[in-house]
């Protein structure tokens, strides 16, 4: 009994110690804590295993170092009992770890009922979160202490939504839906990365998860919902920040992945790969958004890295973007 308590306590201390040293990000949810406990357990077991294997090797290497060319060695061809022992012990540990990992995984994959559902669309190279009331956001904004379900998809290639603080990740696959659930324990801002290779600006496909209090969240959602009454250019600016900033600067006259859009509208003799555009007007910008391969800005050819937005944006959204680009003086 006493032994059991000592072992149990020792185990807790060890796991706690390992957690502190494991370099995992902050724990954003209950799931993150369970994942870290399992990881800490495995770190300890791994450490012990490595000490046995590597330590044993070094110990034998030193102890049985060759002394002369006539050294006599033992002839030990096998030992069935020992071999069974070191087959069964790893097997038991592996199966235990498998079961533990499965339990947590099952919890991750079980979608909560009555969750707040948010559609998240991946596209080269941005994420768009869309809420039930039609609000679109480049950051995923959620309320604290509430079950949230992110329904993922992609409009072009496979992406993967990864939130390290919550230890969750799921591929966003074109042509189908996948889902992630999370329940944030505290407010704050957390990194979101794309973890499935998706081309030129894969590493630039980052955004934030913003966890707000329920009151702040409601306020945010309502304010964003009012954007229908905003002037066109303002709406365009919001959309630009979601869809375009991964590749274009709006207020700095320098190239990013694509050319800067400052001073673009109204420019005369704008250089493109096939010659010049006499005057940059609404039609040129519209074409560049919907069919980027039609005219490619000088220096960005022979093919543009930009994805075609044809079918991705509504008429109104295209117009609002053009209105915003017009204001970039």
């Amino acid at each position: 009994m006493l032994l059991w308590i000592i072992k149990n306590q020792l185990f807790k201390v060890l796991v706690g110690q390992a957690e502190a040293q494991s370099f995992m990000p902050a724990q954003g949810s209950e799931i993150a804590k369970s994942v870290d406990s399992l990881y800490s357990f495995l770190l300890i077991v791994s450490l012990i295993a490595c000490v046995i294997v590597i330590g044993g090797m070094i110990f034998f290497a030193i102890k049985y170092k060759r002394k002369s060319d006539n050294d006599k060695t033992a002839y030990i061809s096998h030992d069935t009992r020992l071999e069974i022992l070191w087959s069964v012990i790893p097997l038991v540990i592996f199966l235990f770890v498998f079961a533990w990992g499965w339990v947590i995984y099952h919890e991750m994959r079980t979608m909560p009922k009555d969750a707040l559902e948010i559609q998240v669309m991946g596209q080269q190279w941005n994420w768009t979160a869309e809420y039930k009331n039609g609000v679109k956001s480049g950051e995923i904004v959620i309320p604290v202490n509430r079950d949230v379900k992110l329904i993922l998809s992609s409009s072009d290639v496979i992406h993967s939504l990864y939130i390290p603080t919550f230890r969750i990740k799921q591929d966003a696959v074109p042509g189908r839906y996948t889902a992630l659930s999370l329940k944030a324990e505290g407010t704050g801002e957390f990194h979101i990365f794309c973890t499935e290779f998706c081309g030129t600006s894969h590493s630039g496909m980052m955004t934030k998860l913003r966890v707000l209090s329920q009151a702040d969240f409601d306020k945010w959602l309502a304010e964003e919902g009012d954007s229908a009454s905003l002037p066109l250019a303002e709406r365009g600016k919001k959309l630009f920040n979601i869809k375009c900033t991964a590749c274009h600067y709006a207020n700095e006259d320098k190239p990013k992945i694509g050319p800067s859009l400052q001073h673009l509208f109204g420019q005369e003799n704008h250089p493109v790969e096939s010659g010049v555009i006499k005057v940059v007007d609404e039609n040129y910008i519209r074409e560049s958004i919907l069919y980027p391969q039609a005219q490619i800005a000088k220096g960005y050819g022979p093919r543009s890295a930009m994805t075609a937005f044809q079918g991705q944006l509504s008429e109104k959204e295209v117009t609002s973007l053009i209105e915003f680009i017009k204001t970039l003086k």
Binding site: V35, Y39, A49, V97, G101, Y105, P164, R167, I168, T195
Partner: peptide
């Protein structure tokens, strides 16, 4: 040993593609 860590379902969700 890190292979075992990656084979574990719940852990691989965090470590996959990192």
């Amino acid at each position: 040993v890190t292979g075992i860590i990656l084979a574990t379902l719940a852990l691989d969700v965090h470590f996959h593609d990192t």
